[in-house]
Amino acid sequence: MTHPTSTIASELLLDVRSVSLAFKGVKAISDLSFSVERGEICALIGPNGAGKSSLLNILNGVYLADSGEIVFAGEHFHRIEPLEAARRGIARTFQNNALFKKMSVIDNILAGLARHTASSFLAQGLRLPSARREEARLREQAEDILAFLDLQPHRHVVVGTLPYGVQKRVELARALVGRPTLLLLDEPLAGMNAGEKAEMSGFIAAINRHLGVTVVLIEHDVGIVMNLAGHIVVLDYGRKIGDGTPAQVRASPDVIAAYLGTRH
């Protein structure tokens, strides 16, 4: 169920076209194509080693695809550098949190605003009026995100000392504060208990609905994914074996065979 090529380009935010990636001859992703519409939540599911994380790494420039191209917001890329990706509004979180563990929650979030900083180091050091106005504006943005994700009580706590579930939320806040267009989440619910998972998926839905951020996420908890995402892409051994709405994917024999393992 791929999108027809006649779809108007402005509706598509992300178009992955025939992307392949191999590590030392081992295929991680084979000729993968799918597209993500602006404003949707798209979930990538599939067994371990299916190539999901590798794909996210290609999308924000950590890995270089062997072939194929990425179209993001109408622009074509063979390779997009991580810094370039961030500047164009692609934000992400990592499977094993990549927070600045020795810094406070608010400093972590402020770091996420680096690409919006216009004032120079000198202006900031001397606390010139322009730099102070910018500082106030950015702090306000950071406070908004703190409130949105219910992190205010932890504002000045050093991130490394927080519980894992809260750290995941801080990482989400740091990705979100730069007002991204596309948010890539690598297993945002991993290692959480049922209550934390429900809370986190509520936040992801709110981010999508209220902030209008398009989300691509990887998640293993199929029950939650089916409720959260409107679009599901199923990978197995680096190939796409399913693509569509949760109902379509759930009914697909290929997906049932590979993902639930009933035929093995």
């Binding site: 961030a86 990549a98 680096a114 690409r115």
Partner: peptide
Amino acid sequence: AALSIGIN
């Protein structure tokens, strides 16, 4: 992580 959030 710094690179991924757009720090130059």
